[in-house]
Design a protein around this nucleic acid. Structure first.
Lengths: 342, 342
DNA sequence: CTGAAAGCGCTTACAG
DNA sequence: CTGAAAGCGCTTACAG
């Protein structure tokens, strides 16, 4: 079992190995009757092509590399992997993961080493690496195809992206419809697609309802900032008397959790004193009380689609690629409530 | 670059391909002078052996499979991967990950399919799969070596494990030293190594200090239980007047987070009314206030060590394997405080 | 529509 | 200590 070679199949079917090769690779130019007979024998002998022999000859590795930053407990990259693996399974590819630790020499040497050893046929690049100019120029230098996931910049190689802006707008409009007017936006994804789109959605919602955009309600920081600056910022925001925002849209759930923590320290009740919306539906929100209203992205679908795009670009005769709808979903829970005048 | 073959090296060095092969595989029986000359040329031409050709001939895939259950945001498996990848990199192996979704047909068909396609030389099996009799008997049927990570049962194949019991004991003794006597243990890892060892450590600490083990302070459930039974249990525990425990050792941080939530709902202050210890130092504890005292396992070290054990068992001439100390660390933060009489 | 031959880049088995 | 030959299981390039 699993030990038959292409020669065994050829012999059993009474054809040449080349004909068997044509059948298993779905090449044209085989009589239907022959094709069926061979297919029958393949099944009967439980024949599976030896991928190493195939790779040796075709000079393809049938390997896809996935590049992502190794945050601990990163459910985003993890979900990308899950979706990508499914696509790889279907197409006969394997996935080579490469969690990159932040270090002084940069990511390039590690990627290079991986590439020279295993020669993946293409790469999937997760955020924020997909916007790292060093990583991108290395890819181009290596002359290997790649698909970016949720990049800030559209120009360049193919990418996959979902409707984060529309979803953010919807979330903020949900707050507006609850009667809120003083709505703050808390962000620390400056320079990332996520930060930009979510902020744009926030502004679009306010614009749409003719609510003025107040710059002191918008807090935006980069990853490089001190983590505890966030606490200060949140505290400052929640302390503003009379003009205190009555709702906060957080760029992600981690930030929303910080707001929960500080609100609790300050004795503010969610959603009575303040409504909160997050982004991601990170599994850790299960620990938050009251349950967090947030936005869920189709992350594994993006991973799946990105892998399929890549495989298609590699020219392997796959079936047609129908685009899935990459919509985000507003998950209404209990951290948002009607505006209550003081 | 990266395009030289073993033949190119042989020609440049004025030896046969077989001699080059001997050098790159560290085989004995080559004159030192020859070995050095060949090594020089290898470096000069930036020669890297073609892994597919090697695999085709040796019938090894140089692939290690990692089996784990696809919880979303599972930082444990993720850490195992990180450590295992490092070991694989050093030994020239690649890692094939297989996150398994819980489904009706069981995991076997998926593992089987993966195995027949990619033929990993061995497997790393994460908990709780390493204690799943179906998975284990499939491995034996497939006749492929595997290393288990933190299995409940020692008998059988090789495994890696760290000192969870000792760490748990230390954590509970920390509570005892703070003056606590009524210490509860909250577990829902029944049937898993983790649940067993952590409970054993709890009991050992009490025994050690001659504190009677009170069964109504020990709550233990399986994964299959309703998740909200936990809320009921925690609430019941915290409601016991006069005999209410003053400290709770939680089998993991997720459970500790639930205790935080319910304590907050009940108006109990941590650590004044109740001290809490978790287990895992899950990144999500950053969202908990006050900061959680917990136990950190050397997870990625376990992954690294497991991979090295496996590679060694595969008989590839690797350097000797020195056992790292697999100790856990008690991380003292602010959720534990001195016993305060009512 | 089908097949015989060559060859991908290594290692195995053997000879010297 | 070193090497010539065969072969792993496929696909490519070509012929018919």
């Amino acid at each position: 079992m699993g030990k038959a070679t292409i020669g065994d199949v050829a012999r059993a079917a009474g054809v040449s190995v080349k004909t068997v090769s044509r059948v298993i690779n779905n090449e044209s130019g085989v009589k239907d009757a022959t094709r069926q007979r061979v297919a029958e024998i393949v099944k009967q002998l439980d024949y599976r092509p030896n991928l190493n022999a195939r790779s040796l000859r075709t000079r393809q590795s049938y390997l896809l590399g996935v590049l992502f930053v190794d945050y601990s407990g990163n459910f985003y990259s993890h979900s990308i992997l899950t979706g990508a693996i499914e696509a790889c399974d279907q197409a006969g590819y394997n996935l080579l993961i490469r969690p990159l630790k932040i270090n002084d020499e940069g990511f390039e040497p590690i990627i290079k080493q991986m590439h020279e050893r295993s020669k993946p046929d293409g790469y999937l690049i997760c955020p924020p690496l997909c916007d790292d100019p060093n990583v991108i120029s290395l890819m181009d230098e290596l002359d290997v195809p790649y698909v970016r996931i949720a990049p800030l910049h559209s120009e360049g190689s193919p990418y996959v992206r979902c409707q984060e802006e529309a979803a953010s707008q919807k979330a903020v409009e949900h707050l507006i419809n609850l009667g809120h007017q003083r709505i703050a936006m808390l962000s620390y994804l400056k320079g990332h697609g996520a930060g930009a789109w979510r902020l744009a959605g926030y502004k679009a919602a306010l614009d749409n309802y003719n609510i003025p955009i107040v710059s002191e309600y918008i807090e935006e920081y980069g990853y490089d900032e001190e983590p505890n600056i966030l606490d200060t910022v949140i505290r400052r925001l929640l302390t503003k008397t009379s003009v205190r925002p009555t709702a906060i849209f957080c760029v992600n759930d981690t930030l929303a959790a910080s707001v929960y923590r500080i609100a609790s320290q300050m004795g503010l009740k969610i959603p009575y004193d303040i409504s909160i919306v997050g982004f991601d539906d990170d599994p850790m929100v299960e620990n938050l009380w009251p349950p967090l209203t947030t936005i869920r992205q189709p992350i594994s679908t993006m991973g799946n689609y990105a892998a399929r795009m890549l495989i298609k670009a590699l020219g392997n005769k796959q079936q047609a690629l129908e685009l899935p709808a990459l919509d985000c979903e507003l998950v209404l829970r209990s951290s948002t409530g009607p505006y209550l005048p003081d």
